[in-house]
C-alpha cells in the first residue's frame, strides 16, 4: 500500500510541474472590429457543478497572431464565406422560387438565433440543429434540396447566421422536451471511445490548458463555430470537428448529422451557455 501511495504522490508532483509553466488560457480580451465585445470567459452553468467553474472560448488558447485575425473582419478569412452566403441568402432556389430573404428579409433578422440552437421543434417533435432547421426551410418552404451536412453551402450559411449573432450569449435550453437528447449527448461526452479509450472530457475537461503534443488543449467549446482553420484553409463545422476528435482516439466515428452528433452538439453547446457567439472564428 505504502508503495502505491508513494509513487502516486511522485506522479502527482511531476504532474503539477508542467502545468505551472503552461499557463493555460490567456487574459486577453476579444473585441471584433473595435466594436463587438465578446464574452469569452463566463461562470459555468449550474449543470457543470463539480466539473468546471469557469467556461472559456477556444480563442484564449490560440497564439496572438491567430487571435488577432479574428479581431477584424478584414483579417478573418471566414468572413469571405459569410459574403458568399449573403448571396445565397438572396438567391431564389427550388420549386417555389423563393429565397431565404423572401421569408426572413435581411440576415440581421436572425440576430440571436444561433445562440439558442440546437433547440426543440414542437411540430417536428425533435431537437434541431441550425443546419437541420435550414434544411427544413429548404425542403418544406422552398422546394429545394437539403444541403449535405457540414457541406460548404451549409457551413457558409451557418457562418452568416453566427456572424449576425456575435456578442449574444449562448443560451440553449436543456430541460423539458430537450432533456432526453441532452442526456444522450452528455453520455457520449463522457464515453471513452476507441483503442485509446479517451472521452471528450479526458482532453477538454481534465486537460485543457495542457499541451498534447503541438496542440494546446482548449475546453472544446463550440460557441465560436464555424471555425476557419489555418490548417485546412476552410470553414469547419462542429460535427466535422467532433468526428476528427473521435477519430483521433482511434475509434469508429459517428457521422455529421447523425443523431449521436445532434445530441452531442446540444450537450456541448450547453457547456458553453454564457459564452458569446463568436463565429466565424479563426483557429489553427
Amino acid at each position: 500500500m505504502i508503495f502505491k501511495t508513494l509513487t502516486a504522490a511522485a506522479a502527482m508532483l511531476a504532474l503539477t510541474a508542467p502545468v505551472l509553466v503552461a499557463g493555460g488560457a490567456d487574459d486577453d480580451t476579444l473585441v471584433i472590429n473595435g466594436d463587438i465585445e465578446i464574452t469569452t470567459k463566463a461562470a459555468a452553468a449550474p449543470h457543470l457543478d463539480g466539473h468546471l467553474d469557469e467556461v472559456m472560448s477556444g480563442w484564449h488558447f490560440r497564439d496572438d497572431d491567430t487571435q488577432a485575425m479574428e479581431m477584424d473582419d478584414f483579417d478573418n478569412p471566414g468572413m469571405i464565406f459569410v459574403d458568399v452566403a449573403t448571396d445565397t441568402w438572396n438567391t431564389a432556389e427550388g420549386s417555389e422560387g423563393k429565397s431565404c430573404a423572401d421569408c426572413h428579409n435581411e440576415p440581421e433578422s436572425m440576430a440571436g438565433v444561433r445562440a439558442v440552437y440546437p433547440r426543440w421543434n414542437e411540430e417536428a417533435g425533435e431537437v434541431r440543429t441550425l443546419q437541420m432547421q435550414m434544411n427544413a426551410c429548404r425542403t418544406e418552404r422552398m422546394g429545394a434540396e437539403a444541403w449535405k451536412y457540414d457541406s460548404g453551402d451549409a457551413i457558409n450559411m451557418e457562418a452568416l447566421l453566427a456572424s449576425v449573432s456575435r456578442g449574444t450569449p449562448v443560451n440553449v435550453a436543456i430541460d423539458g422536451p430537450a432533456a432526453e437528447t441532452w442526456e444522450k449527448g452528455k453520455e457520449i461526452y463522457y464515453t471513452r471511445y476507441g483503442l485509446l479509450e479517451l472521452s471528450c472530457a479526458n482532453c477538454h475537461e481534465q486537460n485543457y490548458g495542457n499541451y498534447i503534443r503541438a496542440d494546446h488543449l482548449s475546453q472544446g467549446q463550440i460557441n465560436a463555430f464555424p471555425t476557419y482553420r489555418l490548417k485546412n484553409a476552410k470553414l469547419n463545422g462542429m460535427h466535422s470537428r467532433f468526428k476528427g476528435c473521435i477519430r483521433d482516439t482511434r475509434a469508429e466515428t459517428f457521422n455529421p448529422g447523425s443523431p449521436e452528433f445532434v445530441a452531442l452538439e446540444l450537450y456541448v453547446a450547453s457547456r458553453g451557455n454564457g459564452l458569446d457567439v463568436e463565429g466565424p472564428s479563426v483557429r489553427n
Binding site: 476507441g194 483503442l195 479509450e197 479517451l198 477519430r247 482511434r250 475509434a251 469508429e252
Partner: peptide, 19 residues
C-alpha cells in the same frame, strides 16, 4: 491508454481512419 490490450473497447477503430 493501454498499449497491449485487444478487448473491452467501445467503438474500436482502424488506426486513425475513423472506420
Amino acid at each position: 491508454p493501454a498499449f497491449y490490450k485487444t478487448s473491452g473497447f467501445i467503438r474500436p477503430g482502424d488506426d486513425y481512419t475513423g472506420k
